[in-house]
Design a protein around this nucleic acid. Structure first.
Length: 434
RNA sequence: GUGGUUGUAGUUCAAUGGUAGAGCACUGGAUUGUGGUUCCAGGCGUUGUGGGUUCGAGUCCCAUCAGCCACCCCA
């Protein structure tokens, strides 16, 4: 049947059959980030649009054509956030989070919005997780942020990915490099694609990233950033690498990494899913040492990364990873007859208040249907109550794995909590062995 | 935003322009209160939507919407 309403293009519903994976991934990320001493920050999903125009850069594709912009009733221009860093930095500046702290370490996760043609692994509303460390230019912080990103993927059980790092230079040496690039590419101007010709003077580093064959070939012999870094940037980069080595994080230096957003300076890195040809960036990040100023605050160095949940799930599926997350019922309740049904609500609430996960379908009546449903639910055991049991003032508890069954006094069942429930299950398992 | 491709039952897919089907899933049953196997039974779905051609359209044409692929970009 054709539904009357459908999700908007490029969006999707996270349905119950996968939502447990989301809960798991979110929790894993939060737990790991907390252990690295990052605290959660939650910002609105929309901001003044010029926040992004100024920070992300008005020549970037994100701002040029992918922003969801709208006017509110008073004519102010807002945009659904296309990325997470600018809002976090805005909040850092606005709330003076830096006062009394040399580094402020923040994590976030939530929906981002970009108007782009949808594709697998690319959506108009997508979900990112990320961290930002603001206030320190110490290369150790760079390494720590990168290690956090790396550890997250590793801890999930992923391995088919590569960490690539680069240093795109500070505003000073980056300019020298840009000059060299323009000089170099200028020789081949006629052979470059129109986009590259246009970008050459605005953002020459982007030419290195072009996928057009001839541009690629020309770019292969272009000057390399590493040769243009000034002493400060070079030692910074070296130290980041030293720290990463110390922390056992494998990486490759890739001088061609150019991040797409304008605010990046110095350290830049990406983690690439090797199993994919396109949409293969699992996560990316880097330094943004002049972003606080652009947003109207005092100069403060910062670094962070962001990754996409959708691409994470693709990678997990590819690797055939079973997430250890399980949320199966402890007990499935079966009632037979009206008397039994009448005593269910109280008993079930009792068990739930004691912390047990209880499943029950009041509309199913036959024993068979209820047993089938219990089986399908994956519940550890069923509790059966019928006229016989009521007469004995007891219930039948059946362990679904061992198929062993035992009568338990009603009073004892009411008292069941996670601990005594586990004991009861073990007892039933023992019965099977005899 | 550009080019290509696809759109049939909950799902995966069939159906030389002539009555729309199958596997899986789902529901019920195989003697009275015990699941995962097996067997039997159960589907009239505006064939994505709207037009057009035709005696007749799931099938051909146009438009539109959506997915996928490549480009672009990135998460």
């Amino acid at each position: 049947m054709a539904a009357k309403y459908k999700v908007p293009r490029g969006t999707y519903d996270i349905l119950p059959d996968v939502s447990d994976k989301w809960i798991y991934l979110e929790n894993m990320f939060k737990k790991l980030a907390l252990s690295f001493d990052y605290k959660l920050i939650v910002t609105p999903i929309f901001e003044k649009s010029d926040l992004f125009e100024r920070s992300v850069g008005d020549t970037s594709d994100i701002v040029e054509k992918e922003m969801y912009k709208f006017q509110d009733k008073k004519g102010r221009m807002f945009a659904l956030r296309p990325e997470g860093t600018a809002p976090v930095v805005r909040s850092y500046v606005e709330n003076n989070l830096g006062i009394g702290n040399s580094v402020v370490k923040l994590m976030y996760h939530g929906p981002m919005f970009r108007y782009d043609r949808p594709q697998k692994g690319r959506y108009r509303q997508f979900y990112q997780y990320g961290v930002e460390a603001i206030g320190s230019n110490n290369p150790y912080i760079d390494a720590e942020v990168i290690t956090l990103a790396y550890s997250f993927l590793k801890n999930l059980g992923l391995s088919n990915f590569n960490l690539e790092i680069n240093n795109i230079g500070c505003p000073v040496c980056s300019k020298d490099y840009d000059k060299a690039l323009v000089e170099y590419f200028e020789q081949y101007r006629e052979q470059l694609c129109p986009d590259c010709q246009k970008r050459m003077h605005k953002n020459p580093k982007r030419l290195l990233d072009c996928k057009v064959k001839t541009c690629k070939e020309i770019g292969a012999d272009a000057p390399v950033i590493t040769d243009y870094l000034d002493d400060e940037c070079r030692t910074h980069f070296e130290q980041v690498q030293n720290y990463l080595t110390q922390m056992d994080v494998p990486f490759e230096v890739n001088p061609r990494i150019v991040r797409g957003l304008d605010y990046y300076t110095g350290t830049a890195f990406e983690i690439i899913n090797n199993g994919l040809k396109t949409q293969n960036a699992l996560l990316g990040g880097g330094r943004y040492n002049s972003l606080t100023e652009q947003v109207g605050g005092k100069p403060q160095p910062g670094i962070g990364f962001a990754g996409g949940f959708e691409r994470l799930l693709i990678a997990i599926e590819e690797a055939n990873l079973e997430l250890p997350f399980e949320n199966l019922p402890d007990v499935y309740m079966i009632d037979l007859g009206e008397k039994a049904q009448n005593m269910m609500p109280g008993l079930i609430l009792n068990l739930r208040n004691n912390g047990l996960h209880v499943s029950y379908d009041i509309d199913k009546t036959s024993m068979k249907a209820q047993m089938k449903a219990a089986d399908k639910s994956g519940a550890q055991c069923v509790i059966i109550i019928g006229d016989e049991e009521i007469e004995n003032n007891a219930v039948n508890v059946k362990n679904m794995n061992c198929r062993t069954q035992k009568q338990v006094k009603l009073d004892a069942v009411r008292e069941l909590n996670n601990e005594s429930f586990a004991e009861l299950m073990a007892e039933l398992a023992d019965l099977q062995e005899k």
